[in-house]
Design a protein around this nucleic acid. Sequence first.
RNA 1: GGUCCCAUCGACUAGGGGUUAGGUCGUCACUCUUUCACAGUGAAAACACGGGUUCGAAUCCCGUUGGGACCGCCA
Length: 483
Amino acid sequence: MKNNNDVVRVRFAPSPTGFVHIGSLRTALFNYLFAKHSGGKNILRIEDTDQTRKVEGAVENLIKVMGNLGIEFDEGPVQGGDYGPYYQSQRLGIYKKYCDELLAKGSAYYAFETSQELDEMRKLQQLEGRQTMYDRRARDLSEDEVRLNLKNGLPYVIRLKVPLNEEIRFDDVIKGTIKIETNIIDDQVLLKSDGFPTYHLANVVDDHLMKITHIIRGEEWVTSVPKHIIIYNALGWEIPQMAHVPLILNRDKSKLSKRQGDVAVEDYLQKGYLKETLTNFIALLGWNPGEGEEQEFFSMEELIKKFTLEKVQSSGAVFNVDKLNWMNNEYIKNYDPDKLTEMALPYFSKAGFEISDKDRIKKILLLIRVYLNKLDDIPDNIVYFIKKEIELESENLKEFLTADSSKKVFEKLSEKISLLDKLDPENYKTAVSEVQKETGIKGKALFKPLRIALTGSENGPELPMIADILGKEKVLDLLKRWI
RNA sequence: GGUCCCAUCGACUAGGGGUUAGGUCGUCACUCUUUCACAGUGAAAACACGGGUUCGAAUCCCGUUGGGACCGCCA
């Protein structure tokens, strides 16, 4: 165990295979919160040991997204640090060295099977209803055989020699004590035939060399912890604290996957979920401050202050978009108007709205923000500010526009408005109530046709505000169409 | 199938031997608003089951059931 004087060092160790998964974000966030809470260091390490899954630009994208969300690193590819390089692909020599050490200590061995052979082995095991697992066939190859194979240039991997008939146990900060019999642990490949390490080797070596004190990662890793412990033990290294956070789940409680909705953080960002919402919401997925705390809105600073691993849930959490929407809407409703306006510009632009007049945009935004679950909902909510003619939401609404009483209302109101210098919410209201007095038309018969004439819809934000934003000319134009 | 993990309203969760089991989202109703939304008020809604331990179990233990993860020269 680590002694208490050690400064906390945690790492987020993604493999750069494309977009940033919501689950990755949560892991990264928990690492960050824990590091900051404990006054420790948050380290980014890129686990790019799978040459076949490499995606161009993935690392840059990842760093950008993390930075965007306010998750910072003290060491990593960008800022460097004393324990680099922080790309595993640049540490190949290091892994080789420790692999040789394991070999020398008899804790690892050469194996010469091809992938095809292993596939066949697995198929057979499946057919027989047995657990698929390497049958350790190369475990006891004689030194001569190994030497001969190597001399003949046979491709090889190096496998972990799992000690048999033992029980491995470890204490997980979140899950408690976990024990597993070594007999069912695979003789895991440590070094692949292309000379790259597997995750299992690389992660242990790096965590040790980078002086990682706490490993915080997804629950899908628990079953491989014993393999890692065997490596730590073989090398005589101390084992960091483990904290396996529960999975984020689909609606059907399976591991959150692309099939059932968006899983890329980029997607949510693009749709206009605010970064504050995302970190707040994700933090609450699997963690809560406890102690009867009923607050649900937390800034990053508050999260840092309150976050502890002990309060991380031990069971999985369903990713509930409804609640995310609610929370995002709350953030939008309470956001600084000017900042919100800046963030909203692209969405206005996307809707074909001229964005040079920011005051006008701010006015519209403040009017419609209660309807926005995400900024991407903006286009749908501003159609009547854009279109030359209104689009009727439903054909049924037309009768309200063509009714005799409506015509009278439109006529009268047009007269009044055309006399005004400039339309504003107040004088619009006055004009309408004058129309009401003079025509005797009131209630639905008065307001509904007006709303429909100006917006094409029977519901929406306050009409005087809409009229104001539309402006005198546009309002007159829209009214006169039905006279 | 094997191993491991998990189990409070539909969802996120608080509570953790004695509570009317609390909050939030969602749902429903009412109020407000001559619209919808917002806001406000209220309602329905949960301790998976069975055994122990105990004066007393949602809470501790065991089992059952259910769910999930993992079983790659992927991470």
